[in-house]
Design a protein around this nucleic acid. Structure first.
Lengths: 223, 223
DNA sequence: GGCGGTTTAAAACACTTGTTTGAATTCTGC
DNA sequence: GCAGAATTCAAACAAGTGTTTTAAACCGCC
């Protein structure tokens, strides 16, 4: 209860949004959790949409700055030479995983982000796109330089797949409970696991794609 | 307008749920799209929750039956020998991708499923868990047989990551628009891309989990 | 025909949503 | 102290939610 109302609302909103989703989280839930008056959110933020945007922006800008900083560091170290794919993956996804490991709010936020990425309300999507624009451009360039023989479109898809794996990695045991009981308490282990999976997927042999529909070599069941 | 009201409602609900999410989709939107009366959904299904459950169950049971059938076919072919990891991946994820390629409703549903897996309302999660129970058990067993060196927990995580990649693969251009313009019109290409990525990730070298004192001495390739 | 069960229709139900209002209260600088 | 701004508060707002109700229309069938 110590920080000011505005911060308490942001924290409460972050926590509840990841639990219930964007639409199912009501202002009354948020203000109750934040021990603030209902009207406070409209007073401090103007609307529910603006509040949600503030929740995202608060951490997302920082996250992407960290990503770019990590990339800068690797590139300075490389002195113009192409980076190793592993370094680029580390700069983008490692930073995210590390933020997700931060019990001090970062974990909550990353789960929210992972969930929202595929399920965007329109206003969140456009806002996410602009917030990601710079970091995406930087990493695309780095990857094309590191793996010049990988077609652009192919790489974009793999990057997309990697984002999916990251998202599920962060949402963690919530969804994993469907598969079976696992331990997600060790962030270092999760980091190592995800990294090796991502690198393996990124460096997989390029698929053979013909422009015309190909017959799928599939073993039809005998039954 | 040809089929009966119940089917029209199911189709309309499926279409709208993937567009707006579980909570943001209202019964009035659904009944308007289905050209049915508002009360029809409560008459035919009992409640909104029951309708959503029916939307999922209609295709999900069939999907998982297909997965088990595909696994059965491979196992019959192998005559007791362990399957190749690629076959198991094909049986689980290939079937899903192929259903997602079906423009005749399957695509819509798979996007809905991928989105819902990480963002589950409580009742959807418990229902998903029971609907997945059998297929998960079968595939866990097949994988453990095929890759005896891989610790169970390690495999569960990789399976989880693969689900994430699948989910993003299916949600496709919607989310990819953040990365840049790509073509997701060719389902065969998507299938080939995802498969090679998944196999690459699954067969990646096992990570070294340093935090635990017990080391895995046989940390060779995962397959 | 007309009847019984099934389906649709319109309206109202009780409730929750985000937002606004206008008066109290607290804080700030002097 | 105290004016003036900033913040909090309780209450109400209009609009939208899922659900229920009641009557009307439809259907197959003897």
């Amino acid at each position: 209860m110590e920080p000011d109302t505005r911060s308490r609302i942001l924290d409460a909103a972050e926590k509840l949004l990841v639990q219930h989703g964007l639409d199912a989280t009501t202002l009354r839930m948020i203000t109750a959790e934040a021990q603030a008056n209902l009207a406070a959110v409209n007073y401090h933020f103007g609307s529910k949409e603006a509040l949600i945007e503030a929740v995202f922006r608060r951490r997302l800008t920082w996250l992407n700055e960290q990503r770019i900083a990590a990339l800068d560091a690797f590139e300075a170290e490389a002195k113009g030479a192409p980076l190793k794919p592993r370094q680029i993956v580390e700069a983008f996804f490692g930073v995210a995983i590390r933020m997700a490991a931060d019990r001090n709010g970062g974990q909550t936020f990353m789960r929210l982000l992972g969930r929202t990425y595929t399920e965007p309300t329109d206003f969140v999507r456009t806002f996410l796109a602009e917030e990601y624009a710079e970091v995406i451009a930087r990493f695309k360039a780095a990857f094309f330089k590191a793996l010049p023989d990988v077609p652009q479109e192919e790489f974009l898809w793999r990057f997309h797949f990697m984002m999916g794996a990251l998202s599920y990695a962060i949402s963690g045991a919530d969804a994993l409970r469907i598969l079976g009981p696992v331990d997600d308490s060790d962030p270092d282990a999760l980091y190592a696991r995800l990294m090796s999976f991502l690198i393996g997927g990124l460096r997989a042999p390029l698929p053979e794609i013909s422009s015309k529909p190909v017959r799928k070599p599939r073993a039809k069941r005998a039954a």
